Simulated assay, not measured.
Amino acid sequence: MKEIEKCRELTEEEDKSFIWKETRRYLGLGAKAGDSMTEELISQCLKDLESTAAPKWAVKEFPLKIQGDRIYTEGFSTESKSLLKNLAGCEKVIIFAATLGTGVDHLIRRYEKIQMSRAVVLQAAAAAWIEEFCNRKNRMLKEAYEKEGWFLRPRFSPGYGDFPLECQQSILTVLEAGKRIGLTLTDSMLMAPSKSVSAVIGVGRQPVNCRLEGCESCDKSDCQFRRSKE
Rank of each mutant, 00 (worst) to 15 (best):
L100T: 11
H106F: 15
E79M: 07
E216R: 14
I4L: 11
I4R: 15
G68E: 00
S196N: 00
W129L: 05
R139Y: 10
A53D: 04
F96S: 03
L183Q: 00
C45Q: 04
L190R: 03
C215W: 01
E230W: 14
Q67E: 15
E50V: 11
L64T: 12
V208N: 09
R155G: 04
L83W: 01
T102L: 12
K65H: 04
L87I: 01
G75S: 15
C215G: 02
R155A: 06
L141K: 01
K229F: 15
M140H: 12
N86P: 06
F96C: 11
R211Q: 08
N138Y: 08
R110E: 07
L152P: 08
L175D: 01
E5Y: 13
N209F: 14
D162G: 03
P164Y: 00
I42M: 04
Q115V: 11
W20M: 10
I181D: 05
L122F: 00
A33V: 07
S196R: 01
S196D: 01
R25Q: 12
G178D: 11
D48A: 10
T99P: 14
R153P: 01
K60Y: 04
R109W: 11
E22N: 13
R109Y: 13
G101T: 10
M116W: 06
K65A: 09
D219G: 12
S80R: 08
